[in-house]
Design a binder for these strands. Structure first.
Lengths: 137, 137
DNA sequence: TATTTACCTACTATGTCAATAGGTAAAAAG
DNA sequence: CTTTTTACCTATTGACATAGTAGGTAAATA
């Protein structure tokens, strides 16, 4: 199940794309528009800066902005960064200790197929596909 | 992320299908073959009985058996029963309080699309598709 | 120098996951 | 009718993740 970290991150990215005017957008404004706790978004944006999804600037006139064009972000990379993994089962989370039953597991092919479906789905969606999609009521 | 409850349940179902000889199969045997804690599987099997996936019989000669043919179970219904929901985001988990932002949410269509993909995938897979798929090494 | 902003560390309440522990009831075999 | 085998039941636990909150520091502009 995709958590708030991933979901909020995508909403922030859309918000930054739609309100882009060349300068930085303060977190306060994003939090107000998105109706999300500013303090919580702070943590999320910190990780987004660290993951090179956005750039932040301190001080008056500071805030955040995208560092690429919306069509240059895939939803998959945003989710993968924020959720830590896009894997749908623990067996497929690239880990140090692989499952010893993998070679005899009759369910593994099922999870691999679903995992590929998930990966392909999110990596074929771009941030630009999501902007101005709401408000149609 | 699909938890052990759902994954183990499917493995149990496959095990019951492959070792079906008309009589009941004791949990002890399933646990041994699947290398899963018997005590933990007990909880899972209890829920599977309650959800009418299998039937249980107490006493000597007792155990569990399928109550339908393998081609009459979808993976989706097994997972949905065991995981509680197949929803991929909290927003789509059929709840009492719907999200007040749903009508303006620009990410909702994305989650709906992924949710449908997931639902269709798992409901198009049958238990019979999974039996005797391992051991190919 | 004051204000605005990001950035940083720490804490916390709640819940879920994956079990474990120890018992009771039921059914068949002896 | 007693023993054995099995499912079934209630309760508890440790570890971890989620979704935040609280309060401070550093940076940049006016």
């Amino acid at each position: 199940m995709i958590s708030t970290r991933g979901r909020y991150a995508i909403r922030v990215m859309i918000d930054l794309a739609e309100n882009d005017n060349g300068s930085y957008i303060p977190l306060k404004d994003i939090a107000a528009r998105q109706e999300i706790s500013k303090k919580y978004l702070e943590i999320i944006l910190k990780d987004m800066v660290a993951g090179n999804l956005v750039v932040g600037a301190s001080g008056k006139g500071g805030g955040y902005k995208l560092c690429r064009k919306p069509e240059e972000y895939t939803v998959g990379e945003i989710l993968e960064l924020m959720e830590g993994t896009l894997a749908t089962v623990a067996c497929l989370e690239g880990r140090a200790i692989p499952c010893p039953r993998a070679s005899v597991c009759e369910t593994l092919p099922l999870w691999e197929e679903y995992d590929k479906l998930t990966h392909d789905f999110f990596y074929s969606k771009y941030l630009s596909d999501l902007v101005n999609k709401g408000e149609t009521k």
